[in-house]
Write a protein that binds this DNA or RNA. Structure first.
Lengths: 238, 238
DNA sequence: ATGCGGGTTAAACGACCGTTTGAAACAGTC
DNA sequence: GACTGTTTCAAACGGTCGTTTAACCCGCAT
């Protein structure tokens, strides 16, 4: 019974330190000392530093992605959306679970995941593509379906910007409160959700309209289309 | 004469490694070896690892911020903007110099600066607030002036989201190209500029309109106002 | 030639890192 | 109470890190 207790204590501290200082700067000695566990126990329970980081990440990533997919299927099944609001709903299904997690478990879990985007160890990158890849693909197609006639590439760009605004909010909101120097009050989770969703949804819609008119993008898009159809013709490119 | 040559070689390598692996994972041995310089020369020329990172950052930050301010004063002085386009212009003045730097000097300088946002050593945070603080304040007020009647806090939120989308693009565009899995073609600098500016400008405008209607934000805003006036009454709070 | 100061170099120092080891403490079972 | 498997513990190992030291090289004014 005590085994799982120490496991969780170690995971909690690892999550905190991963969010605060990142993977490279997190020392197992600091983790185990704060968790009141022995140094060797992290190797015993997780197999090493990599395993610990992976376990700490998975503990948070999986519920968030599950809720994302659940919300997305929910809004897709009700189906009789008045059209224009769908983009906003998709965006909210994507960012909502993250902000919900931040509201109920504190900012550390989100800071950890956001920071791992930036870290270099290759196993972290592999984890992200493995666990976020399918979810991102579902949301990209959902964004495309919500804006008929828009190429899938534009949907990926929208999602990219949404992720950027979201992770930046998770990680660096405090820096901006510093920069603003009392001009911005610390915000509630609801307020952040509202602001982030409003910004991203409108940005995404306008991005699609704008992209259709811009020559630099239009030419790139035809190139993309040609390439993608080429790929469809020849079964596998690489 | 050889002194400045080694200085620059070390700075170039430091910039590359800071952008690739971050501050904590960058070892001076790797820097000096790649720069064909001696290990001790870092301490001789820059006083230590901190000094090296600071010098590498300043070499890129200062021109970018200078060009930002120059573009902003340029569009403010011409003044007879048709109103609606001003937000877009301000956003472009903010993100344009960064994308311009990326286009002419490669992605590493921007990756370095973006990554330093996430790193933990306190001197880096101090540098960012010192050098970006005044610039951010000018752009926040410019955004507010471009949208009359909007509280300054909303302008700060807009700027926050813009920075998020921009830095995420500088750092993690490759990850998204991976996730998209051939559905998105690698983009030119012009295309990225267009997409980013379109997304951010429209997001900012819609954010302002939306924020005015949302109860969660409206209440928070009145609270902000009350707090700020309180602060104005009592000279210094802390 | 001589002295000198800026710049380079190899070697070493102490600190901290992740990991391993082997013994000790503990649980539950016969 | 002895045995077995699991979990904890202190100690040590090899390695890398940032920094320091002291000797050395070289152009240049004296």
């Amino acid at each position: 019974m005590s085994a799982e207790a120490t496991r969780n204590a170690i995971l909690d501290e690892a999550e905190r330190l991963l969010g605060e200082v990142g993977y490279a700067a997190m020392s197992l000695r600091a983790v185990t000392q704060a968790a009141k566990a022995n140094l060797a126990s992290v190797n015993y329970h997780f197999g090493g530093k990599d395993g610990l980081a992976k376990a700490a990440m998975l503990r948070r990533i999986e519920p968030v992605n599950a809720e994302r997919l659940a919300r997305l299927t929910a809004i897709e099944s009700k189906r009789r959306a008045p059209g224009g609001a769908a983009v906003r709903e998709v965006v909210e299904a994507f960012v909502g679970p993250v902000l919900h997690l931040a509201a109920e478990s504190g900012p550390m879990p989100c800071a950890m995941v956001g920071r791992m985007l930036t870290e270099e160890p290759p196993f972290l990158r592999a984890m992200l593509t493995e666990h976020f890849g399918p979810v991102a693909k579902r949301f990209a197609t959902a964004l495309q379906r919500a804006q008929p006639g828009m190429p899938i590439a534009d949907a990926w760009w929208q999602l990219h910007f949404v992720v950027g605004a979201m992770t930046h909010t998770m990680l660096h909101l405090d820096l901006f409160l510093d920069l603003a120097d009392k001009a911005v009050a610390p915000a509630s989770a609801d307020e952040i959700t509202e602001r982030l969703a409003a910004f991203c949804a409108a940005g995404a819609r306008a991005h699609a309209k704008h992209a259709a008119r811009m020559p630099a993008i239009a030419t790139a898009r035809t190139a993309t289309k040609r390439r993608s159809t080429t790929n469809a013709a020849k079964p596998t490119r690489r």
